[in-house]
Design a protein around this nucleic acid. Structure first.
Lengths: 216, 216
DNA sequence: TCCAAATTAGGACAGTTGACAATTTTATGA
DNA sequence: TCATAAAATTGTCAACTGTCCTAATTTGGA
């Protein structure tokens, strides 16, 4: 937990003065525990009783803080998505660097995150949930839009001659392409130990395609 | 169901002479129904009672054909994976075509499949399941290995000068990259109507990177 | 036709789930 | 100190889950 932003207090209630309202430490604990179970054991295992037990509290107390399971899931999702938005938002501003170098760094950072167990486990769960839950769909969709924004910004710097439509297409391809690595990063063999080489190929490919793209 | 291969009879028991054993039509129906529910409503909704109900049979009858839920899930997975293997296996042999043209066709076919609702819904479910189920993990892993084989074959034709390791890396990048489109193909906006353009960018990018790759 | 096997139906079981209500404990502030 | 609200406990509820068992029915072959 060292330095990791707290889900609720730091993200859902940023910079609240005079401390936080009572019970927010508990809500915080609940969400972190729920997320842990979701990542380690999957959505099916993330029952109210399982969460309560892992928190060391009784079911009734959990439903006091989150009356329904849907309440809990929604706040968890908001917190998780917010944490990713904060992470990617920090990349946008890196003055004094060539756009290609910034593209490389951005891709490196995203791919590094993609390689983490948290992301490789969490996002497949979210994709599956999004298929049948409009709220999850909405939030994940929103996250991708925000994550794509700095990417498209850099593309615009590299190719000011392109119409916006083409820049969007390039951004969509690159982001989708990187997202695909999430699926494979979860596999141990033969992908895991080849990840650095594949990452290198990916970034080279991205730079090449942006540099050489010819509008139809 | 016109022309669509039957899950069990056509794939798990291909070319069985003298017809199929009794009860295989029922097992067929069960698997198709289960798959339909899995795609349309998700893994959670795919309960034994739900499947039986959708098949127009009683629970006891379903458990006669599949004593445990795990039996059903495993055979369903085997059938689904087999159907994809059959699909991709047909691509390998297309004599008299330049390797680049074959790469383009292969990518087109995969991307076309990726755009189908069946695939965009099913695979996120499988990824999520694979995270916490060794059997699902194994089968999905296997499928990707098989799907990558023809791709790497074409890469070998295009770049016989490269060591095998580099060809594998290129194949991994391209397949992972295409798989990433699955995630986004499920989204209605803004990706869906941009899919053709992104597909074009993707294939151009793949050809370029294979053609111009320089070993370290 | 008739027997035996395959199939279907129906019921029951223990376990789990989310939600809720009544209650007690704890913390807070005047 | 004490009243008040917040927090946590305990127990209950109907609904649902997978599994198992037995009886009825249908089917196919001799």
């Amino acid at each position: 937990m060292d330095g990791v932003p707290k889900l609720v207090t730091d993200l859902l209630m940023p910079g609240r003065e005079g401390g936080y309202a009572k019970g927010y430490e508990t809500r915080e604990l609940i969400l972190r525990t729920a997320l842990h179970i979701l990542i380690e054991e999957g959505y099916r295992a993330m029952s109210m009783r399982r969460i309560a037990g892992a928190c060391g509290m009784r079911l009734g107390n959990l439903t006091y803080h989150y009356p329904t399971r849907e309440d809990l899931v929604r706040e968890l999702l908001n917190a998780v998505i917010s944490s990713y938005e904060v992470e990617f938002g920090a990349i946008v501003h890196a003055p004094g660097l060539e756009p290609e170098e910034r593209l490389t760094r951005l891709c490196n950072l995203i791919i590094e995150d993609i390689g983490s167990k948290k992301t490789t486990r969490l996002f497949p769960e979210l994709w599956a949930l999004a298929n049948h839950d409009a709220f999850v769909y909405e939030r994940v969709h929103e996250l991708y839009d925000r994550a794509r924004a700095p990417l498209i910004e850099i593309i615009a710097e590299m190719r000011p001659d392109l119409p916006e439509k083409d820049r969007l297409d390039l951004g969509l391809f690159i982001s989708a392409s990187m997202e695909g690595l999430t699926v494979f990063a979860g596999y141990q063999m033969p992908f895991a130990q080849r990840m650095p080489a594949v990452e290198h190929i990916a970034i080279r490919s991205f730079i090449d395609i942006v540099r050489s793209f010819q509008p139809a």
